[in-house]
Amino acid sequence: MSRAPMPYSQKILELFRNPKNLGRMDDATVSAVAGNPACGDMITFYLKVTEDEVIEKATFESYGCAANIATSSMLTEKVKGMKLEDAWKISWKNLVDEVGGLPTVKFHCGVLAIGALRRAIRAYYKDRQAAPEWLPGELTFEEKQALEEEELAKVLSKRMKTTEDGV
């Protein structure tokens, strides 16, 4: 069997039905976006960060599938009260495990959530023009993936506009 009807876990269903920490945060310290509305999937992450670099509150908005909504919600819960350094270390795999697994085609939705979080953390330090030692200079896998997805969306939407006519 090659195709399954998105066997979302109970956890995902629960978070999809009752997402936590939803909505724009007007007093956010920093926010970041991942994904591209032109391809649909898009997440915005808002963080409120204390003086000593602890995430006091995180919220999100998602224009994506149930997996996207659930992983984003899970991530906002998880990072609450965490130091930025520890939040940075959460990988997409941790996130996927925590929501009870995801179908392979939906991995990228979890990756996007991490991508958005890491971008927000980077933006935080960029605003302050102070990069801590633990913050890698190079983009991490999740950030690259987010970037790749955005690029891909651009390419695809361009390709789809040119009609495949003739031979």
């Binding site: 391809c39 969306a153 695809l156």
Partner: peptide
Amino acid sequence: SACTRRILQPSHVLVAIGRKYEEAH
């Protein structure tokens, strides 16, 4: 929607009638 498809591309019919990605979405 692209999210319902394995190849993560939206319906070719909607694209052919000129719907934007986010409309097909």
